[in-house]
Computed example of a mutant assay.
Amino acid sequence: MSTKQLSDRIPVSTQVKEPLRVGILGFGGLGQAAAKVLAPKQEMIWVAAADQKGYAYQAEGLDADRCASAYRNGESLAYVEAIGVPSQNSIEDLIRSAQGVNGYFLALPNLPNTFMADVARLFIRSGWRGVLVDALKRTSAVEQLLELQAEFQASGITYMTGCGATPGLLTAAASLAAQSYAEVHSVKITFGVGIANWEAYRATIREDIAHMPGYDVEKARAMTDAEVEALLDRTNGILALENMEHADDIMLELAGICDRDRVTVGGVVDTRNPKKPLSTNVQITGRTFEGKISTHTFTLGDETSMAANVCGPAFGYLKAGTQLHQRGIYGLFTAAEVMPLFVR
């Protein structure tokens, strides 16, 4: 069967007629990985990006390697030759300058804990209309976005929250697996992350540290790189995290799957070894209509990186959010409510 014949059989509702023009906010480890994920895609073109010190925009598409090289050399997209722009208000300036961007992936650290909601307000005030996707972790951060529901709807913004790995891919798996049960007793998410060098994901590691006993978001945010390294030296590069404040709980509660107190999230991050310290999985335990107690387990392949398991779903949800937006459906949605669509 030819590619043409195959594409003819794909439902029209899942096809993208014109490539979506996509922006990435944040260009650390996750943002750079997102750019690489987009590079081979035909249904999405990466055209805009911003970091703390500047932004880059190119209507015909940005080059991931070129931007990453400039970022490494100057620690900002402002140094991308010919198209980089220094800015102290990079997100606002990019929104205003980049015309025709259909959606943005917010690959931003939520430090402080109000940051993502503040970024969302920038889009609302700007008059921009389109799709926003984040990979938020904390329950309290999602609750702040819920307070903006009416403003998203009035502004013509379709916002997809918690669309990374966890929350995100594993939350969606739990929502699907729950269908076997008359009652869900527990959802247990356990993740393993391996990275060779913590400095490639500084913001993500600080967010993880914020979940450790004796730390919070502000304390983790204020830590210098030297202080982070000293902490990792004491733990041999391992961060063991238990009973985290993770938005999987509120997302599953909003979807009517189970009360949030039945959801637990924890895991192990190895900051000195790319091999996962343990397999990432979600276990959903419940009672069937026959009265049987059973557990479904969904396990991610150890070969898939954190970046692959975050960025892939994020763009799948961006595509799904775009189809909602095109139908005039605006507001806040979570990864447990909408099925992501594969981006070709």
Rank of each mutant, 00 (worst) to 15 (best):
L6P: 00
S13Y: 11
G23H: 03
G31P: 14
Q32H: 02
Q32I: 06
L38N: 05
L38R: 03
I45E: 11
V47I: 06
A50D: 08
A50V: 03
G54H: 01
A56M: 10
Y57V: 08
E60M: 11
L62E: 08
D63Q: 04
R72A: 02
A78S: 14
E81S: 15
V85F: 01
S87F: 06
Q88H: 11
N89K: 00
S90P: 07
I95M: 00
S97K: 04
G103N: 10
F105H: 13
L106E: 03
L111S: 13
A117M: 01
G127I: 00
G127R: 00
W128T: 07
W128G: 09
R129I: 05
R129T: 15
V133H: 05
R138Q: 08
S140P: 00
A141T: 12
E143W: 12
Q144W: 09
L148V: 12
L148N: 06
E151L: 10
G156Y: 08
G156K: 03
G164C: 08
A165Q: 15
T166E: 03
P167F: 01
G168A: 06
L169I: 06
L176S: 15
Y181F: 15
F191N: 05
G194T: 10
G194N: 09
I195H: 08
W198K: 06
R202Q: 06
R206F: 07
Y215I: 13
D216V: 11
A222M: 04
I238W: 02
L239Q: 12
M244W: 05
E245W: 01
D249E: 09
E253Y: 00
C258H: 05
R260S: 15
R262Q: 14
V265S: 13
V265P: 11
R272S: 14
P274T: 06
K276E: 15
P277W: 07
L278E: 12
Q283G: 14
S294M: 13
L300F: 04
L300K: 02
D302L: 12
M306H: 15
A307L: 04
P313S: 02
P313Q: 03
G316M: 02
Q323A: 14
G328I: 04
I329S: 13
Y330N: 08
Y330T: 11
G331W: 07
A335N: 03
E337H: 02
M339N: 13
P340V: 01
R344H: 13
